[in-house]
Design a binder for these strands. Structure first.
Lengths: 198, 198
DNA sequence: GTCTATAATAGGATAGAC
DNA sequence: GTCTATCCTATTATAGAC
């Protein structure tokens, strides 16, 4: 079970960056866990930002791979969406808004877009692939692209640590999915509410 | 137009905290804008955290007041929801996930819950008041509380600075509201997709 | 490739004069 | 109520020995 020190650093850094964020994670902390000195890190990475970028890219690609796996499953379309939603809501190991916040604040302008690009490719692509599969079922004003983007937004708000569960008891994966698919209102009242399109 | 220095500090601090966050805002920066020395701040506030808390509370109450105004308007239920959504999406002057992230990371454990409590009261209460008004129209599995919580989640994901608009062209307020009300799928396919309840 | 020592910076906070 | 001077601490990063 030997492991390159470089890889070990990435692994420890991933845990810390993703759990408490970029700023809150110090290079000393990472070094201490690995029982090496803090300057030793700088042999493997140019600086903290470079390490962070590598962590984010590796992490994001791994999520993308998982999502691809779910989308390729041979199950019903409803079940597939349930599995995607469940993966993102329950198994996704990071507070997504924190990650985006870190990228916003701590990463230099030039790199921000390329990181976001990688993030987007890995999260968005498999999801859009799914919504293409159900495009026939979508209302006319919503295409697979619109659906994907909105889906990612909605789910991102559920991908959190949730320290406030006392106040905001989260909806179940099933509830979130159902509301997403068919909305919150009864069909028979749509006309009365001024909801026409379909 | 005379103004208490204390109030001026709060005003400047609000702009900075809400735009770039707690950590990125330094007390030196606040002082500089007001042309006072950095230690002068400590005459008015015990420390940076105390200042932040006061800023968050004042800011949150103001949003709550605006939301109450919208909910009390005498317009159609659909228009009211549109106005609420528009206010939160377009006029809300802060990146909400950043604010919650700051509260998470920078505020001491004891105060975190009381701040969140205030936040919740001001955002959640008026929204739930609205969904109570349309409770009859909601599907059986969704009550006004569930609807409010989900609505806040969905909207929170749209209350951002959006530095990535190239990639993620945001939905319009109308689209967001419509998807929320009636979902993304056509009613006639609900049975085929396994969407039964209503 | 890892160490010790240390530089460089920056930020929050306090002491004490005025 | 505001100032100057200063402390303390934390953190990233580099220099140079081994």
């Amino acid at each position: 079970m030997e492991m390159d020190m470089r890889d070990q650093i990435i692994q420890v850094a991933t845990d810390l960056f993703m759990e408490i964020g970029f700023t809150a994670t110090s290079t000393r902390q990472i070094a201490q866990i690995l029982n090496i000195s803090q300057p030793a890190l700088y042999h493997h990475f140019k600086n903290k930002e470079d390490l962070y970028i590598e962590v984010v890219i590796k992490f994001t690609r791994s999520v993308g791979k998982d999502l691809q796996t779910v989308v390729k499953q041979e199950v019903s379309l409803k079940e597939k969406l349930f599995n995607m939603t469940k993966y993102l809501h329950v198994n996704h190991p990071v507070n997504l808004s924190m990650m985006l916040h870190d990228i916003d604040q701590e990463v230099s302008e030039e790199l921000r877009y390329s990181i976001f690009r990688i993030w987007w490719d890995n999260y968005y692509s498999p999801i859009e692939e799914y919504f293409k599969q159900i495009e026939n079922y979508l209302i006319d004003d919503v295409n697979s692209s619109t659906a994907s983007r909105h889906y990612l937004r909605v789910l991102s708000s559920y991908i959190t640590e949730d320290k406030y569960q006392d106040f905001d008891e989260s909806l179940t994966v099933f509830e979130i999915m159902m509301i997403f698919l068919r909305g919150i209102t009864k069909h028979k009242y749509h006309q009365e509410l001024g909801i026409y399109y379909e």
